[in-house]
Design a protein around this nucleic acid. Structure first.
Lengths: 256, 256
DNA sequence: TGAAGAAATTGACAAAAAGTCAAAAAGTCG
DNA sequence: CGACTTTTTGACTTTTTGTCAATTTCTTCA
């Protein structure tokens, strides 16, 4: 009896999910199609009508998944930042002294930018007031939650560095502010690189190298032990990438 | 005869400009009205129709000034970056050792962000692909020109630091890449601050302090002589602000 | 001064995209 | 099967951008 009930309930659930699975499958297709359009044809090409055509459905169906275009973009950004947060998490819980874990976060950023270009594009699109302001508070909160968790993970490494005696922050700055400046350096570099593709013309061969060197010397400047040379830093970055993110295509030793 | 000709020509010119002055006056009014709307009601509120109403003219007249909304925004961004470039110029031609001039650029950035909030907002709006892609190549070139000039001015300071023996760049990084990482730190911090107003909640009291400390320690980390402590840096920043930008409202000593 | 011509303004209109919703179709379950 | 729920559909409304022929305003010159 109980078994029957259970199996029946399961069957009901199975059917229910079977129906919803179809919808969820389309949602995945929707998101991946939107991503394709974004990457290949740019933001302007991504309209709801276009999306409907591409998926061979009516526009109303798209609006059944997301109340408007902005929410679709923000939902894509949420999965993106979720991935980033996972990578930050892996980096900050890796083994080694605090500075090595910090290096792993740097590796995470570079891998994220290199191997998940759509993720980064979507994250930066969503920053824009024109998008952000039109989204529901729930999704914005979700986005902020991940953002803060990323920050907290990095700030945690800073704190453990202080606790271990490897780092002494100068008066008037706290771990979160240090974290912000590191993330700003990384995020800012990638953003500038993305929006002005003429960096090569003014002598910047590689943003990645610029980020690597900038963060290396900032941390050295803070006196975070052990101090590294540019060469040591490069070696360790490649190695940490292999151990913490073995499934990812590895970083080039000399950032290009 | 010649005098008559000349005066006649001048009269003609005067009339010509008199007519155009009216148009130019309105263009100024247009731009300042757009700025007001942007600052007080945000990007979404800035439509061409709204602008026309605000100015008591027809929509067609607005389109007589700018072919579309994006061009209006980019033109605002051009005057903004022009101002920034002037400030960078003043900073980089100030007196003192290379590191002091670099500090002056930092002061320029902080003043620019504090005292010209609209300028910064407009510069960052225009980065977005949705805006950038729809502008004419001419204005985009103009924007790039100023951007590159700003970069070149800073890279020039780096180069003079190297020439003076105050700085030795590690192999594999050039002055432009160093410049990029500094600008990314600054621009990135301000952008993050602008787009996520919840930084206070996670313990970041002041982005300005974060930028100051981040760039200070990055330059210290590069071994750029003379090295400074956080206190020395703060003192000098306030002083350089008074000497290089005396007409600007001064920076607070402890960045808040 | 005033008439002819040039330049600028206007607002109705076309175009494009977002977003809505009542009716139809598909799916569920006793 | 048949009553019911859920989902899809596409025509429709709305909103905003951008256009342009007609009109007004300004300039020039006899």
């Amino acid at each position: 009896m109980e078994i029957d009930d259970l199996s029946k309930k399961n069957a009901v659930n199975a059917k229910k999910t079977a129906k919803q699975q179809k919808i969820e499958l389309r949602e995945e297709l929707l998101v991946s199609t939107a991503g394709q359009i974004l990457l290949t044809e740019g933001f302007a090409a991504l309209s709801m009508e276009r999306l409907a055509e591409e998926l061979n459905t009516a526009k109303g169906t798209i609006y059944n998944h997301y109340p408007n275009r902005e929410e679709l973009l923000l939902s894509m950004a949420v999965t993106a930042i979720n991935k980033r947060q996972e990578m930050f998490d892996a980096a900050s819980t890796s083994t080694g002294r605090s500075r090595e874990r910090m290096l792993a976060v740097g590796a995470a950023c570079e891998i994220y930018r290199r191997n998940y270009p759509l993720h980064f594009v979507v994250e930066s699109i969503v920053c824009h007031a024109a998008i952000w302001d039109r989204c529901t508070e729930e999704r914005r909160d979700l986005m902020r939650k991940f953002e803060h968790r990323c920050m907290a993970l990095v700030a945690g490494i800073v704190r453990s560095g202080i606790a271990d005696g490897d780092l002494e922050l100068p008066g008037g700055i706290n771990p979160e502010e240090m974290t912000l400046s590191l993330w700003a350096l990384t995020f800012g570099s990638y953003t500038i690189d993305m929006t002005s593709p003429s960096l090569k013309d003014i002598g910047i061969d590689s943003v990645h190298r610029s980020v690597r060197m900038g963060s290396l010397h900032m941390l050295n400047g803070y006196g975070w032990q052990p101090l590294w040379s540019a060469e040591e830093h490069g070696d360790r970055l490649v190695r940490v990438c292999q151990t913490v993110f073995p499934e990812e295509t590895p970083l080039p030793h000399s950032a290009t």
